[in-house]
Simulated scan of single mutants.
Amino acid sequence: MPQLSVLLASLTGSPSPSLCPRCCHAAGSGEHWGTPPVDVLQALRFPSVPDGVRRARGICPADVAYRVSRPAQLSAPTRQLFPGGFPKDFSLLTVVRTRPGLQAPLLTLYSAQGVRQLGLELGRPVRFLYEDQTGRPQPPAQPVFRGLSLADGKWHRVAVAVKGQSVTLIVDCKKRITRPLPRSARPVLDIHGVIIFGARILDEEVFEGDVQELVIVPGVQAAYESCEQKELDCEGGQRQSPQNQQSHRTQRSPKQQPSTLHRPQNQEPQRQVRELSEPPTAAHPREGRHPDISPP
């Protein structure tokens, strides 16, 4: 534990925290109405392409994602992302593609005492970690979403909705699974620790793959509404420029105009481009770890 406290202090840039029992900081309490969404990738400086990260094509041809292919220092003090406290009920939204066969954390939030308070682990199965200031829920009651695999080398849209005593996982706008989350009535997460992307402190398992979006939004409405624009997301990437659209229309008679409610010509190329997008591989594996794993 002393080593862990020193490591946390180096990550947060603050003095080494005292090794006291779990406590509740005043800045981490409350309902946090009006708290804005937090773009975790922006806060962790992904757009500046730090060491271990490079730009890659996203889920749609026009999207930009970030490929994490070797150990990187992607962390920040939690209070910088949530100065008003971490919301009680929230949505976690991500668009992600992991290296095939991977089982690793996407995001982990530690308290000042080194307690893992929040985490999302991708792979087979998907695990959600939550522990409030009272230590609830205990490890045996931590939610596990069995029967799902997000380690197949494909893009996935993942939404997590945490509200009250339950957590709901929505994958690709098709699968929706709810699990109990027996936390306390007024749960609080300490914001005086650190938030880390793709790793856990003193753990060798790390994330490898592509991530396009990682956002935490107060309330659960964002998670349930995240699929409403799904069909339109890639349409913008395939849409022609206004000049090309005008030229294309002048070559058609009014009877030959395609219906605006049915776009079979746009849908098929969209699938082809998505299938041809390069999956994350172990082209730059970490030394000594799974050099022979490749996408199916």
Rank of each mutant, 00 (worst) to 15 (best):
T94L: 13
V96Q: 12
F86N: 03
V126I: 15
L122M: 07
L102M: 13
G119E: 08
A72V: 04
L102W: 02
T78S: 15
Q80I: 01
A76I: 01
A112I: 03
F90R: 02
G101A: 12
R70W: 05
R124D: 13
P139E: 07
P83N: 00
G101L: 12
T98S: 15
Q138A: 15
T108L: 08
L102D: 12
L107K: 02
D132R: 06
L74N: 00
P137H: 14
R124T: 14
Y110H: 13
E121D: 08
R136Y: 07
R97S: 09
P77F: 00
E131I: 10
P125W: 02
Y130I: 03
A104P: 08
Y130N: 00
L109G: 08
Y110L: 08
P105A: 01
R79Y: 08
L129F: 10
Y130L: 11
T134R: 10
L109M: 13
P83A: 01
G135E: 09
P71E: 06
L109H: 11
A76E: 02
Q73Y: 02
R70G: 08
Q103G: 12
Q73W: 03
L106Q: 14
R99V: 07
V95T: 15
L107S: 03
A104M: 08
R79V: 05
G85M: 08
A76T: 05
E131N: 14
L122Q: 04
P87Y: 07
Q138G: 08
L93P: 12
P83G: 00
R116W: 07
A104G: 10
R99K: 13
P137R: 14
P87F: 07
E131L: 11
R116P: 03
F128A: 01
R79P: 00
F86K: 03
P125L: 11
S111C: 04
A72W: 01
G119Y: 00
P100T: 15
V126R: 05
R124N: 14
